[in-house]
Each structure stands twice: as structure tokens, then as C-alpha cells.
Design a protein around this nucleic acid. Structure first.
Length: 492
RNA sequence: CGGGGCGUGGCCCAGCCCGGUUAAGGCGCCUGGUUUGGGACCAGGAGAUCGCAGGUUCGAAUCCUGCCGCCCCGACCA
């Protein structure tokens, strides 16, 4: 492991890649565009998963699992969705390999083993799921149907980046069916709230809730809701989406139910998802030039204890003194590691825990032990304090809460400092070039204008915020009247 | 799909233009010792089909041809 990171100021993109690798989160695999998520990175993902899963269940959802493969005929049934994903689908055409007669020891695709119907590797699962729901839903008594699945999906991207865009990624996808339009919209909005709650309160990432414009909408959806976050380089990142699918899939897959009067109706649908991309958001929201910073609420390890000692009996004395303290911490739901690895020196461990973003580090040597205290360092501000051992558990417990709050507040301040209202296209371009960030501006509501602005500036409309002010103004490009501001940014 | 780069012990890489002893160095690893309050030091040691396949040559990591893989930049996207 090399020392240090490239600084954000020198090369933001190199900084990001180095954090991912040096913090032990993920690495490039031998497979193009695909990553290996390493134990530490996966532990963070597992925590995110566990918390979200609990939230889904608390809102009445159940988990299920649907196949990785989708027959092409099923996939193409809902045309808009199929069209939207067509360009990035991996397709299975054969089911067997055989020994290559002209190349000893090598295998070849057996031309005899072509599939009668190609299988699409799911880029999302609407097709297979709605084909299944047709069988599950007959009556209004079967509704609402609230299902989630944790799965991998494949989108054959041209250009990939660890966590932000990989050919295969992990996510959850919720797919629900409802008797009425209102109920489905309510579900769509509810799940967006769940995401916002999770991302803000656990990941400490402030988000803007809003609605996508037509061009950014999920293929096959009537309306796409999203949460948008702002990264430290001034680019926006979509952190989660929730879609109101109308009756598009119900009609494509003929999913009908008998209402209370016995009349056959198509059901109303939603889908919603967040992915391992959130790991990228985590890194780019909080981390600094020393490495990753993980908010306590999702950290796999809260406290690393580094003993400093010369003789074995000193180590043993420290260990013994810490035994009850660690028990007390664990009883309070705080995960602790006592690092007595003798192969690494304390300075090395300090740097390593900083790189991994462990929220709190405790250092304890003979000097402290004699005074009955320990040095407690917090990762977010790097402040150190000397704390009496008998108060340690209480202190750390409180400190973790403070770190969580501080990270969120810090990110929120960054966002307000980097959100600008502009009223002319000149100003728009200037702010975008010199400051970046979110730009709040009037837009005439047409796709043409949106595309033109993107073409000219590379910035797109991230969302029409829920909280958009009602005010009359003029589109920054066309000067046509507008009733509210939308949020622009360059995006990941 | 277009443009560029790279492939040499586990990792980072020198060597390649201009072919010629035993393929250099750093990190890591193993052994022993000294160390331990911000990425320790000394001594010794192990570890390489130089991406693959052909070709040129007395001789190829180095030159030629083909192939494979990955990364980066653009178009596309969560």
C-alpha cells in the first residue's frame, strides 16, 4: 500500500479512484467494466442494505427473487422500456461450449448449441416481474402487491468507473402493483421519502427531492421522482429514483384484476431503486485528502483502539484495562476493534484507519494508562481529546452522534454554498464554469430548450424540486415565461 | 464505435528507440535482531513461462505480424 493520496485539488478523479482502492473498498477485476467489491467495501454496502431492507419491510414490502435472464420476447413487450435499454443489453445466445478441434486445450462456443430464443441479461426486471405478476394478481384482494428484490443487473456501459458506473452492479428494485392510480402515486412518493430518509439520516448526504423532466425520465415510466446529491467537485449525482409506471406494464403484460364490482381493470404500477452507486456518493460527499470518511450510522467499524507499548506486559495491562470498556461499548451497539497487531507500528495504523474512514480512533500508551485516560481522535475533524477511561464509553457514544450530525451539516453547508440562483444565460455559463454546483434557474418547460442548454453547457436539469418556488420569470435561454425554477448541474 | 495508453516476481515499475553475460530498483513477503506516542531500521533470503501465438536472427523483454486483455479520453448512460 502506497502512502498518501492524490489531493482533490490536484486531480479529483485520481483522488476518487485511489480512495476506492486504498481504503479497500473495490478494485478493477479481470473482467472489462466489472469490479470486485472487497470485504471492507462490501461491509459498508451490507450495512446500507440491512438498514434499507428494514425500512422496506416496515413499509409493508416483502423480498423475492426473480431470474437473471429474460427471454427476448418478454423483454420487448413493453416497448418504451425495451427501447430505452436496448443499446446496453448483454445477450445470451448459446448454452454450451466444446473443445476446439483446431486448438488443443481451448474451448469454443458450440455452434450447435444456439438458443432458440436469446436471453437478455436483466438491465432491470420489470419484464420478468410483470410477466409473473399476471399470474399472481386476479382480484383487488391481491392488491396492493409490494415486492422488493436485491439483485445484480447488467448494463453494457461504454465507459465505467468504480461504483459510479460499472457493467454489473448491485441494487434493490421494488416493484409494486396497486388498484388505483392515486395509490400507486402515493407509493412512488412514499418510497422516495424512504430513500431521502435513509440517505440523509444514515449516509449523512443531503438530497434534493424532485421530479425528472421528460428526457431524464425512466423508459416506460409516466413520472420519475428522484433524490439528487451534490458532490465535492460540484457535480450532481442521482442517489435514488422512484417511478410511477402508470398502467404501461400492466397493459403490456396484461395484468388485470377484478374490482369490487367484478369489473376487470389494469393495475397501476411503481418501481424504485438504489444501487452500489451510493458508495460513490458516500466517498464524494464526505471524504478528504487523508482518505474515506464513513458516517457512524453506516460504518462497519466505529472505534479502532491502538495500543502503544514497549513490553508485552504493557500491552497486557492495556488489554486488561480495555476489556470492560470494550464490553460496555459493544453493549451500546458500538463496534470496536482492539488492534494488537505487533507487525504494524502505531503510526502506520493511524494512517490506515484514517484511510478507511473509521469514525473514532483511540490511542493508549503507558503515559495515558498512568493517568487513567486515553487519546480519542475523531475522523471528521481530526480533533484529538484526552478522555478519562471511566468516561470513555459515554464520551464515544456521544461523539459518534456528533460526527454523524457534523458530517450532514458540513455537506449541507457545502451544498448551500454551491447552489446559485441565476437569471440569465450569461450568468448561467459563468457560474457553471467558475463555481459549478447546483444552478437554480427558469426554464420554459420544453425538451428542445433543455437539450440545447445541455449541448451548450454540458449541464442538465437534475430535477424540478418539490420545493421549487412559485414565481414568475423567464427562461434563461429562450426568455419565454416560466412559473418556477428548476435545478441544473453537470452530473455523474 | 472512434482516439490514445499499457501488459516485465504479489504490487508499482526500469530496461525496448539502438537485439548480446546472471532482467535493475522500490514496496510487499519470509528469517533473525533492534524497535513501537503519526506510514521504523539493520542483516540475510525467497520469488519472473518478460500478456499469448507465430516470424526474423547464431542470439529476442527488445525487431516484425497477428491475437488477447485491461485502463484512459470522446459519443451513450443509474
Amino acid at each position: 500500500m502506497g502512502k498518501g493520496l492524490t489531493s482533490r485539488a490536484d486531480d479529483y478523479s485520481a483522488w476518487y479512484n485511489e480512495i476506492v482502492e486504498k481504503a479497500g473498498m473495490a478494485e478493477h477485476s479481470g473482467v472489462k467494466g466489472c469490479m470486485v467489491i472487497k470485504p471492507y467495501g462490501f461491509a459498508i454496502w451490507e450495512n446500507m442494505k440491512e438498514i434499507l431492507d428494514g425500512m422496506f419491510k416496515a413499509t409493508g414490502h416483502q423480498n423475492a427473487y426473480f431470474p437473471l435472464f429474460v427471454p427476448k420476447s418478454l423483454f420487448e413487450a413493453e416497448e418504451k422500456n425495451a427501447e430505452g435499454f436496448a443499446k446496453e443489453c448483454a445477450v445470451v445466445t448459446h448454452y454450451r461450449l466444446k473443445n476446439d478441434p483446431e486448438n488443443a486445450g481451448k474451448l469454443m462456443v458450440d455452434p450447435e448449441a444456439r438458443l432458440e430464443e436469446e436471453l437478455v441479461v436483466r438491465p432491470t426486471s420489470e419484464a420478468i416481474i410483470w410477466n409473473t405478476y399476471r399470474k399472481w394478481i386476479q382480484s383487488h384482494r391481491d392488491l396492493p402487491l409490494l415486492i422488493n428484490q436485491w439483485a445484480n443487473v447488467v448494463r453494457w456501459e461504454m465507459r465505467t468507473r468504480l461504483f459510479l458506473r460499472t457493467a454489473e452492479f448491485l441494487w434493490q428494485e421494488g416493484h409494486t402493483a396497486h388498484a388505483t392510480k392515486d395509490e400507486a402515486i402515493e407509493e412512488t412518493e412514499k418510497m422516495l421519502e424512504v430513500y431521502a430518509d435513509f440517505v440523509e439520516n444514515f449516509m449523512a448526504i443531503p438530497v434534493v427531492k424532485g421530479i425528472k423532466t421528460e428526457s431524464e425520465r425512466f423508459a416506460g415510466a409516466e413520472e420519475t421522482y428522484c433524490i439528487e446529491a451534490l458532490m465535492q467537485d460540484g457535480k450532481a449525482l442521482q442517489a435514488g429514483t422512484s417511478h410511477f409506471l402508470g398502467q404501461n406494464f400492466a397493459k403490456a403484460f396484461d395484468v388485470k384484476f377484478a374490482d369490487s364490482t367484478g369489473k376487470q381493470e389494469h393495475v397501476w404500477a411503481t418501481s424504485w431503486g438504489v444501487s452500489t452507486r451510493l458508495m460513490g456518493a458516500l466517498i464524494m460527499t464526505h471524504s478528504d485528502d487523508e482518505g474515506l470518511i464513513v458516517p457512524p450510522n453506516i460504518a462497519p467499524l466505529h472505534v479502532a483502539i491502538v495500543p502503544i507499548y514497549k513490553e508485552e506486559d504493557q500491552l497486557n495491562a492495556i488489554k486488561e484495562r480495555f476489556q470492560p470498556i470494550m464490553e460496555e461499548l459493544r453493549e451500546n451497539g458500538i463496534s470496536v476493534k482492539f488492534d494488537d497487531d505487533d507487525q504494524k507500528r502505531p503510526g502506520w495504523k493511524f494512517s490506515e484507519y484514517e484511510m478507511k474512514g473509521i469514525p473514532v480512533r483511540v490511542a493508549i500508551g503507558q503515559r495515558d494508562l498512568d493517568q487513567g485516560c486515553a487519546e480519542v481522535a475523531r475522523r471528521d475533524t481530526k480533533e484529538k481529546a484526552s478522555v478519562q477511561l471511566e468516561n470513555l464509553c459515554e464520551y464515544i457514544s456521544k461523539l459518534l452522534g456528533e460526527i454523524q450530525t457534523n458530517l450532514f451539516e458540513r455537506a449541507k453547508n457545502f451544498r448551500s454554498e454551491n447552489t446559485h440562483e441565476v437569471n440569465s444565460f450569461e450568468e448561467f455559463k459563468e457560474v457553471l464554469n467558475y463555481k459549478g454546483g447546483f444552478i437554480s434557474a427558469h426554464w420554459d418547460g420544453t425538451t428542445e430548450t433543455e437539450e440545447k442548454i445541455q449541448e451548450l453547457t454540458k449541464a442538465s436539469i437534475r430535477c424540478i424540486p418539490y420545493k421549487a418556488k412559485e414565481e414568475s420569470g423567464h427562461c434563461i435561454l429562450t426568455g419565454k415565461p416560466s412559473t418556477k425554477r428548476v435545478l441544473f448541474a453537470k452530473a455523474y
